[in-house]
Each structure stands twice: as C-alpha cells, then as structure tokens.
Amino acid sequence: MKLIAKTFHGLEDVLAGELKEIGAQQIKTVNRAVEFEGDQELLYKANLLLRTAIRILIPIHHFTATNDQELYDGVKQFDWSGIMNVDQTLAIDPVVFSEAFTHSLYVALKTKDAIVDQFREKEGKRPSVDVENPNMRLVIHLSNDKATISMDSSGESLHKRGYRVGMHKAPLNEVLAAGMVMLSGWDKKQPLIDPMCGSGTILMEAVMYARNYPPGLHKKTFGFMGWNDYDPALWNKIVEQAKEGITQPRLKIFGSDSDIKAIDIARESALQFRLNRDINFSLSSFERLEPHYPKGMIIMNPPYGERLMKDKDIIDFYRMIGNRLKRTFTGYDAWVLTSNKEALKNVGLKPLEKLKLFNGSLECGFHKFNLYDGTIKKIIKFR
C-alpha cells in the first residue's frame, strides 16, 4: 500500500528517519511530505507514533483535469462504493495549485457532487456530508492539471496531541516543536533549557521524545476508525505495545518565561500527560536566568517582532540574547528559531548551522550557536 506522510518544510528528512524506525519501505522525501509503503499495521503505527507528521494519506485515484467538466468526470471514474457505502458520511478537503482552478472550495464542491451523484445514480440515494466527523475524509490535490484524491487516515491533524489547555499569544505548532528538538541533536541526557518557553510546547515535545511517549496516545479518534476495514483488535494491540515502550529516564529539563500566564498554561498543560515531574518551570526573564548545570543545550523561539514586540525594541532584545548567551551560558549549544534576520545579526555570534523551517507562513532560520570559551563577537552576514 502506497502512503504519504505530510509535514512542514525542513522536516522531511526527520520524518523519513521516523518512518524507517517503524518499518516503512520504499521511503522517498518530497516537498513537505514523505512517500512510503506499508500495510494496515504500519498505517496505524504511523498515526500513533510519528512526531513530525501532520497527517497520513492513502492516494487512491489519479487523473487530469483542465476544466470543471473534466474534474467532475475524473472523480466519477472511480468506484466510490468500494471504499464507503451510501449510509456513511464524507468530507472533502481541497489543496489547489492550479491556474485553471482558482477557488479551492469550488473544487471541493465539484468533487463532492461527482461522488454523491454516482451513488444516487446507482442506488437511488446519496451519502451525506459531515465536515466535522465524517466516516470518510478525502483530500483532493490539484497541481496544474494533475489531480490526486487520497483517503485521510488521520482525521484531525496529528499535531493536536491533546495536552494544550490554553492559548498562548504566539503558540508553536507541536509538530514543528518536535522537529526542532530532533534536529538539534539533543541526546536526552543533556540538560535542556527553553528560556522563553511560552506555553511549554518545545519542552513537552522533548519529554515525550525522551520517554518514547507516543504523540497520538491521547487522540480519541482517527480517520481510519470510520472506514469499513477498521480493525479495532489490531489498533488496540499497537496501542498496548506502544504503552509498553514508554520509558522513565531521569531528565534535566527547564523552562522559564517572564509571562506568568504563559507559565501557568505550561504547567497545566504538562499535567495533562503527567509530564510535570520531568519539567522544571520558573517565572523569570532571560536577563535574570542562571543555568543549573555548566553544560547543556538551549532551544528557544524568541519573539520575531511580528506579534509580540515592536520593531524599535527587537534589536535591543536580540542584542541582550547574544550577551546573555556569551556571558552566562558558556559550555552550552544554543538553537534559535526566528524569522527576523536583521534582528538576529545583533546576537553577535556566528552560527555553526542554519536550517530553513516555517513557523506558519513565516520562513524562519533555525540557527545553532556553539558557546565555547573565548567566543569572539562577530556580526553575522546574511546573503
């Protein structure tokens, strides 16, 4: 069975590595996704275990379409009674990159019309649409004239782990946070600090990663559970095996923030999965934070100046970050995610690595700084 795992730009190789670990075959990275092959058991494992996947799709139908009628006819070429029955519900999610089709919702409507019309012509009645909790969620992807329809096995996006109890002013997506932890090379034994932790997403993803805690364990429903071939016994077996694999290592993980509401949200969120004993949260600004250990790793997502800080203050803020890193955190490796290239120049450190990631629609750099003794201030030159 051919499958596709969707992810964010820059996390394709991390996701490919995760897929290899769970037994996927014929793995191939593409833009914001990884193609692979596996059986029903692997499909279930992918939804439960993958940290950097947004959703898992099964492509079932390919055709070409350059206008409305070709789209409608192409959808009707497939025998939809083979994957669902008329008494079940469906929903259509469109992803459109085509000059011929400029309105994605119209593409979804035409796709739905073709499917329900086929059922009406064959059986005299049609399935209903349920956009919230359908038995069958389909994704139609149109790239120029190439159309692919896939079954969405995940349903609600896999980034929704279930631990988030409140909304921070600028929340970090859980999949992106997990990818940052894995890209950093954190060895799980090092002390780990997020000095601007907000609601604690990076740290909670780090704990789950270190403990081998399945990110989908608390997700109540998946798309595949509404399918005709859903195997509850197989799913329960996979879940129990995953629970048995959870470990209890001794972790040194610290989160701080100057916003008391953010710290309150982080602490309450950590309680949801009982991760609170693994994370030491404190109310502190970065200017006053002192490390508990002489060496370790820092991963931070400071304000970019987009929502949380005015432009006039952002330069001084990044200059403060650089000064604190150089003077207080010698012996640490620091990873900084930001979309503000100009502000980052004022950190005064030369990055050893620069990776491109996206935080929502914002293109960001994920920069690694090695804070060794005798670090020389050097303004970064960006091309």
Rank of each mutant, 00 (worst) to 15 (best):
L234C: 07
G23N: 08
K220L: 13
D145K: 14
N47F: 02
A262N: 06
D278L: 11
A108Y: 00
K160G: 07
T148V: 13
I246H: 09
D264P: 00
H141R: 10
Y332G: 05
L109C: 00
A178V: 13
W235V: 02
D311V: 14
M167N: 09
Q77C: 11
K169E: 15
M136K: 04
Q248G: 06
S285H: 03
F366D: 11
F36N: 05
V14R: 01
G374H: 07
G360K: 08
M180C: 07
R307L: 15
A100D: 08
T375F: 10
I4L: 02
D333G: 08
L90C: 04
E99A: 15
A178P: 00
I193V: 12
A91L: 07
K110C: 06
L50E: 04
D79F: 08
E353T: 06
M309F: 07
Y304S: 03
V131N: 01
M151K: 11
L355H: 14
N323A: 15
R137T: 11
K2I: 09
Y304R: 05
W227E: 14
T328H: 03
W235S: 04
G360Q: 07
I4P: 01
S143G: 07
F36H: 05
M136I: 14
G10E: 06
G226P: 03
P134R: 14
K45I: 05
V34T: 00
T247K: 14
N67R: 09
K350S: 15
E123D: 11
F254N: 03
G348W: 06
L337Q: 05
D231M: 13
L142F: 04
S199D: 06
